[in-house]
Simulated scan of single mutants.
Amino acid sequence: MINNPITQLEQLTLTGASKNFLKETARWAKFLAIIGFILIGLMLVFAAFSTTIFDMAAKMQPGIPDNLGLIMAITYLVLAIIYFFPVYYLLQFSNKMKKAISTKNDETLANAFEMLKSHYKFIGVFTVITLSLYVLLFIVSLMGAL
């Protein structure tokens, strides 16, 4: 019998210590997801009231653009939408991991790891996009300084 990596992985088993680590990871993931959803809620509340807040600020402090409230509202709505997906994936990972460990279901375990993969993939792609925008901003600012 040939021992190729695929055959070895198919026979992977979780030890008691591994299960405990995964349970604890799932608990922390749920905690972080709940905090994430609370922050998303705060972003949405701020987006809802930002036009009022910045309109009042513009009346008190000359020089603040009139449409700053609308710009801030749109910005916070976009950020809340973007932030929703990794937080959702993290919550799904937590719920599915807890279920997989309690039911000892391999398919549920695979689904939990799929959610964790989606979470990290989203964070990775978002990081690459953000770093690319920083590099582009740096290049544009250098061109403007010349």
Score class of each variant (00 low, 15 high):
residue 12 L to K: 04
residue 133 L to M: 11
residue 71 I to S: 09
residue 111 N to S: 12
residue 124 G to I: 07
residue 115 M to S: 15
residue 63 G to A: 07
residue 1 M to I: 08
residue 37 F to K: 10
residue 7 T to E: 01
residue 87 V to F: 02
residue 132 S to G: 15
residue 85 F to N: 04
residue 95 N to F: 08
residue 52 T to I: 09
residue 90 L to P: 04
residue 109 L to E: 02
residue 58 A to M: 04
residue 117 K to T: 14
residue 44 L to W: 00
residue 58 A to E: 03
residue 38 I to Y: 07
residue 105 N to P: 08
residue 88 Y to W: 10
residue 63 G to Y: 03
residue 66 D to W: 02
residue 38 I to E: 06
residue 1 M to Y: 07
residue 45 V to H: 00
residue 134 Y to R: 07
residue 136 L to Y: 11
residue 15 T to H: 04
residue 127 T to Y: 08
residue 96 K to E: 08
residue 78 V to Q: 03
residue 5 P to H: 00
residue 101 I to E: 06
residue 47 A to I: 01
residue 13 T to F: 03
residue 64 I to F: 07
residue 56 M to R: 11
residue 85 F to V: 13
residue 106 D to C: 03
residue 62 P to C: 00
residue 103 T to R: 10
residue 56 M to Y: 11
residue 82 I to L: 15
residue 62 P to M: 03
residue 58 A to G: 04
residue 102 S to Q: 14
residue 128 V to A: 15
residue 107 E to Q: 12
residue 28 W to I: 15
residue 68 L to C: 04
residue 14 L to C: 05
residue 90 L to T: 04
residue 135 V to S: 06
residue 56 M to P: 01
residue 56 M to L: 15
residue 43 M to R: 06
residue 91 L to T: 02
residue 18 S to H: 11
residue 97 M to H: 03
residue 47 A to P: 08
residue 33 A to H: 06
residue 87 V to D: 01
residue 107 E to F: 12
residue 103 T to E: 15
residue 55 D to H: 12
residue 25 T to K: 14
residue 97 M to S: 02
residue 136 L to S: 13
residue 142 L to C: 10
residue 98 K to N: 11
residue 139 I to F: 10
residue 76 Y to H: 02
